[in-house]
Write a protein that binds this DNA or RNA. Structure first.
Length: 267
DNA sequence: TCCTTATGTACAA
DNA sequence: TGTACCTAAGGAC
C-alpha cells in the first residue's frame, strides 16, 4: 500500500515493460482508454508524490493514483484470467501487470499532466525538488506540522507512516505549528525524508529504525511490525517506546491516526 | 459471514 | 467536518 516510495518503485517496475503492450480493462471501467493505448509501447514512466504517469506515444499519459486501497501486482505470462476487479491489465512478451482499486486511472494529455504537477509540492524522491518551497508554506502556517506533512501541496509523497516516523526521528512534537519549525529543523526533516524514502524505493517497504536501535542492537527479542517494515511509532499505540519506554500515543488528526512518543518528541 | 480497518483524496455543506 | 469511493485481509462470531 502506497506512500510515495511505492509509486516511484512502480514507475521503475512498469518501466521494464518493453515493446508493444496489450492493454485491457477486465473490470470495464477503463475499457475505452485501454483500447486507445493497446498495442503502443510504454515509452516512459514517471512519479510525482503518489501520482504515477505511464507515457504512451507522444502525449498520452495514463494517470494512476492508488488511493488507500489500490494495488499493483506483477507476474509472468501467461497471465491468469483477470479477476473482475482488475481495472487495467498491461502485458508484454514476458510479463503482465494488474492494477486494482485505484482512486484514479485516466487517460490524460500533457497539459492535464502539467496541471497535476502544478498542484503538488516538492517530492523528496525527485531530483527537481526544492525543499525551500515547502518550508515557505510551513513557516507561514499555524497548522500543525503533522497535518502539513500530509498535505500534498506542501510535500508530495509523504503519507501516514513517513509522517509519524520522521517526526519521531527528528524528535519533533507533531502538534507544533508549522511556523514554529526552524529552518535547521526543516533541513533535517527533509534530508531524513530523502534518505528514508530512497531506502523505501530500494526495499519496497518502510523501515525507519536506525541500526543502533534494532532489537538485536538493543538486546531485545526480535519483533515484526504488522505492516512489513520496522518502525518506531506507527501503529504501536500503547506499546512502550523502543528508546525511552514511554507508552506510544495515538490520536485522530484530520481523520487519520497519528502516532507519537510523548517522551521523545518535545515541543 | 459479517465487521473493522488500512500506507488516500475529493467534494459538499 | 463529514462522507463517499475503491479493495482485501484479518478478526470476531
Amino acid at each position: 500500500m502506497p506512500e510515495g516510495h511505492t509509486i516511484h518503485r512502480l514507475a521503475l517496475d512498469y518501466g521494464r515493460l518493453t515493446g508493444p503492450v496489450r492493454a485491457s480493462s477486465p473490470q470495464g471501467k477503463f475499457s475505452d482508454a485501454a483500447s486507445l493505448v493497446d498495442g503502443a509501447p510504454l515509452a516512459r514512466t514517471e512519479a510525482h508524490g503518489k501520482h504515477l504517469f505511464l507515457g504512451f506515444r507522444d502525449s498520452d499519459w495514463v494517470h494512476i493514483h492508488l488511493g488507500l486501497f489500490g494495488k499493483v501486482t506483477f507476474g509472468p505470462v501467461p497471465a491468469p484470467p483477470a479477476a473482475d476487479t482488475v481495472r487495467l491489465r498491461l502485458t508484454d512478451a514476458t510479463s503482465y501487470v494488474d492494477l486494482r482499486g485505484p482512486t484514479t486511472c485516466a487517460l490524460i494529455n500533457d497539459a492535464e499532466k502539467a496541471a497535476v504537477h502544478a498542484r503538488l509540492g516538492p517530492d523528496p524522491l525527485r531530483d527537481d525538488a526544492d525543499p525551500g518551497l515547502a518550508y515557505r508554506r510551513i513557516s507561514r502556517s499555524r497548522t500543525t506540522v503533522a497535518a502539513l506533512l500530509m498535505d500534498q501541496k506542501v510535500v508530495a509523497g509523504v503519507g501516514n507512516v513517513y509522517r509519524a516516523e520522521v517526526l519521531f526521528r527528528q524528535r519533533i512534537d507533531p502538534y507544533r505549528a508549522g511556523r514554529d519549525i526552524t529552518p535547521a529543523e526543516w533541513d533535517a526533516v527533509w534530508a531524513d525524508l530523502v534518505a528514508l524514502m530512497h531506502e523505501g524505493v530500494r526495499n519496497n517497504r518502510i523501515d525507519t529504525v536506525r541500526p543502533e536501535h534494532t532489537p538485536e542492537a538493543m538486546g531485545r527479542p526480535p519483533r515484526v511490525d504488522d505492516h512489513g517494515g520496522e518502525v518506531y511509532v506507527y501503529r504501536r499505540a500503547t506499546l512502550p517506546c523502543h528508546l525511552c519506554g514511554t507508552e506510544i500515543r495515538t490520536a485522530d488528526l484530520a481523520s487519520r491516526n497519528l502516532f507519537w512518543c510523548p517522551g521523545c518528541q518535545r515541543s
